[in-house]
């Protein structure tokens, strides 16, 4: 969330629930999404942290994999995909929706 430092997106994997709880209590990382459980019973989540905090996360039963070395830069690049001005300002400009609007066929079935 800092403007001044790179923020990493990391995948944090803990061997079990107790390890995960202790990690979350101790480090309070900025968590993205929810916690997932892998087939081997380990638990993982994404976190957005500074490089220093990423180095502080690994411990007994915890592994950290970097997914994005500068998530802030990725986000800033994405800001270029935000509209400029107001595409709906003209009186006849209305959102159309993304679904196809299709006439019912004879064999149309409900979803």
């Amino acid at each position: 969330m800092s403007n001044e430092y790179a923020i990493l997106r990391v995948r944090v994997t803990a061997k079990d629930a107790d390890t995960l709880r202790a990690l979350l209590r101790d480090t309070r990382p900025d968590v993205g999404g929810r916690i997932g459980q892998d087939e081997d019973g380990s638990l993982s989540f994404d976190a957005y942290v500074s490089p220093e905090k990423a180095q502080a996360l690994p411990r007994e039963g915890v592994t950290v994999t970097t997914l994005d070395y500068d998530a802030t830069a990725t986000g800033r690049a994405r800001q270029a995909e935000v509209g400029q001005g107001d595409q709906f300002a003209p009186a006849d400009a209305v959102p159309q929706g993304l679904a196809l609007k299709v006439k019912d066929s004879k064999g149309a079935k409900d979803a």
């Binding site: 993304l98 679904a99 196809l100 609007k101 299709v102 006439k103 019912d104 149309a108 079935k109 409900d110 979803a111």
Partner: peptide, 12 residues
């Protein structure tokens, strides 16, 4: 009309 989202469709 109905609505089609990829493989999911809804009738009018």
């Amino acid at each position: 009309t109905g609505l089609t989202y990829g493989g999911t469709s809804f009738t009018s």
